[in-house]
Computed example of a mutant assay.
Amino acid sequence: MAVTQVSATDAALALITKLKTRYGELMFHQSGGCCDGSSPMCFQKGEFQVGDSDICLGEIGGAEFYMSKPQFEYWKHTHLIIDVVEGRGGMFSLEGPEGVRFLTRSRLYADDEWAELVSAGKV
């Protein structure tokens, strides 16, 4: 089984499904600070402009998940796990009106996972 760089909890996947019903195709970008701190931001697909300084880490619930290259350098040793918690999150993220917010959790890769990512040129 291929090592992934991002995954989502069942609660996050259920929320993504709900948001897709309302808004259509989605995308995520891991915010690196500024207005909304460092949180996964959910947008309608194409609503957030990704560029050469962003990389796609994979998909969660069929939605691509992006992060800036400089931020990835700090997080590349960790597998990102997108979860949902109660409370208000980023004011620009689509889940805001639901009274919940997406949250990034992480874990370090095991040695064999890291070796696979290095071998595949993903880090």
Rank of each mutant, 00 (worst) to 15 (best):
42 C>E: 02
23 Y>N: 11
44 Q>I: 09
12 A>S: 04
109 Y>C: 05
118 V>M: 10
41 M>E: 12
23 Y>D: 10
94 L>R: 05
44 Q>A: 08
87 G>K: 04
68 S>D: 04
121 G>T: 11
83 D>C: 13
6 V>S: 14
77 H>E: 10
33 G>S: 02
45 K>W: 09
36 D>T: 01
12 A>Q: 03
91 M>N: 08
102 F>G: 03
7 S>M: 08
7 S>L: 06
121 G>N: 15
42 C>M: 03
90 G>L: 03
50 V>N: 00
109 Y>A: 02
91 M>S: 10
15 L>K: 09
74 Y>K: 14
90 G>K: 07
47 E>M: 09
116 E>G: 00
123 V>N: 06
77 H>M: 10
97 P>L: 08
92 F>R: 14
34 C>I: 13
95 E>H: 11
89 G>Y: 09
111 D>S: 05
67 M>H: 02
38 S>Y: 13
92 F>S: 12
85 V>A: 05
114 W>Y: 07
77 H>C: 05
97 P>R: 09
17 T>D: 15
45 K>R: 14
102 F>Y: 06
6 V>I: 15
71 Q>D: 09
41 M>A: 10
9 T>F: 02
1 M>T: 13
21 T>R: 06
93 S>P: 12
76 K>L: 06
5 Q>G: 08
1 M>V: 12
30 Q>M: 11
109 Y>K: 05
36 D>S: 04
43 F>M: 04
88 R>E: 15
76 K>C: 10
99 G>Q: 15
55 I>A: 05
76 K>A: 06
28 F>Y: 00
10 D>Q: 15
83 D>I: 13
49 Q>G: 04
99 G>F: 14
59 E>A: 10
41 M>D: 08
51 G>E: 11
72 F>D: 08
47 E>Q: 13
63 A>W: 00
72 F>C: 06
6 V>L: 13
40 P>I: 11
43 F>K: 05
11 A>M: 00
122 K>C: 00
74 Y>I: 13
64 E>L: 01
102 F>D: 01
60 I>D: 09
101 R>I: 10
112 D>W: 08
38 S>I: 15
33 G>R: 03
27 M>H: 13
52 D>C: 04
15 L>T: 04
4 T>W: 00
46 G>E: 07
76 K>F: 04
13 L>G: 07
51 G>N: 14
6 V>H: 13
14 A>H: 08
17 T>M: 08
76 K>D: 06
33 G>Y: 03
49 Q>C: 04
39 S>A: 15
21 T>M: 00
27 M>R: 13
85 V>I: 06
99 G>C: 14
76 K>I: 05
15 L>C: 03
103 L>W: 13
39 S>Y: 12
103 L>K: 13
110 A>F: 12
68 S>C: 02
59 E>D: 11
7 S>T: 13
34 C>Y: 15
121 G>I: 11
58 G>A: 12
57 L>K: 02
26 L>A: 02
58 G>T: 11
37 G>S: 01
95 E>V: 10
7 S>R: 08
103 L>Y: 12
120 A>Q: 11
111 D>A: 06
41 M>W: 08
8 A>S: 09
82 I>H: 01
54 D>E: 11
86 E>M: 07
56 C>Q: 09
114 W>H: 05
75 W>E: 07
22 R>S: 02
98 E>H: 10
112 D>C: 06
21 T>C: 01
88 R>I: 12
30 Q>F: 07
19 L>N: 07
